[in-house]
């Protein structure tokens, strides 16, 4: 490990960074020189993500917060500015999925999924974008959607609805924030191998996914890294489907 990142290295916030795809995104961005604000609801998981970010040669700040709390957007922005003095990217990765047949989904599940997967994302985008606009700065936002923003799976109507909404709100964010030099895109993962992935997914993957395997969290991270970077300087309002070809079948 070297001397760590320089004080003008870019800074990104990653939500849902305590494990799975969020942790993979954080590690990938750290490897590419980003300093990170990582957030989730669980302190111990975040500490592990921070260790991995540091092993990748960067530095991270941990914020334990619930995205359903209306004070969380300003808390996250303030953490980035207090810790690193700048904010360049926002990655909205945190999401909730509760599997229940449509006709049995209680209102509580609907409310929780829409709040976490859609409403909280919008207001965190608003917080960070407002800061950029107020200070004549620019930046990029990546929302982690899902192949389910387009295709249907059983027992996940509220989740699919939230992701359909997220894909559309990504477009309107891109439309309205484009004149300010802010780009907004999405990555829509298929099945990704995380600690929560059931074994049956791994066994069935060769049959269901043209590439023949589940995705790795860092394969979502590389898509996010591209969309945040200047290599994607003319890319806005779209989504990259990183699904190993799942949607082709």
């Amino acid at each position: 490990m070297g001397a760590g990142p320089s004080s003008d290295a870019p800074v990104a916030i990653v939500t849902g960074a305590g494990g799975g795809i969020g942790r993979g995104i954080a590690i990938t961005l750290a490897e590419r020189g980003y300093r990170l604000v990582v957030t989730s609801r669980t302190a111990a998981d975040l500490e592990r993500t921070r260790e991995l970010v540091e092993e990748a040669g960067s530095s991270g700040t941990v914020v334990v917060a619930d995205l359903k709390d209306p004070g969380t957007p300003s808390l996250l922005l303030r953490s980035a500015l207090d810790s690193f003095g700048r904010i360049d990217g926002l990655v909205n990765n945190a999401a909730l999925n509760i599997f229940v047949p449509f006709w049995d989904q209680p209102d509580r599940n609907l409310d929780d999924m829409i709040e976490t997967n859609l409403t909280a994302v919008f207001f965190l985008c608003q917080e960070v974008a407002s800061y950029w606009v107020r200070n004549a700065l620019t930046g990029a936002i990546v929302n982690i959607s899902s192949a389910e923003d387009t295709i249907a799976y059983p027992d996940q109507v509220p989740y699919a609805s939230s992701k359909g909404g997220l894909l559309s709100v990504t477009k309107v964010l891109a439309l309205e924030l484009g004149p300010f030099g802010i780009r907004v895109n999405a990555v829509s993962p298929g099945s990704v191998d995380t600690e929560m992935t059931p074994d049956i997914y791994r066994r069935e993957a060769p049959k269901l996914i043209p590439i023949g395997r589940l995705g790795e969290p860092q394969e979502i991270g590389t898509c996010v890294s591209f969309l945040l970077s200047d290599d994607a300087s003319y890319v806005t309002g779209t989504s990259i489907y990183a699904d190993g070809g799942y949607m082709l079948l």
Binding site: F102, L118, A152, D155
Partner: peptide, 17 residues
């Protein structure tokens, strides 16, 4: 916009089930 994008997938996923 968000609500109508969500209605699209409400339609498709409810249809599936």
């Amino acid at each position: 916009t968000a609500s109508k994008g969500a209605v699209t997938m409400l339609t498709r996923s409810a249809a599936f089930e």
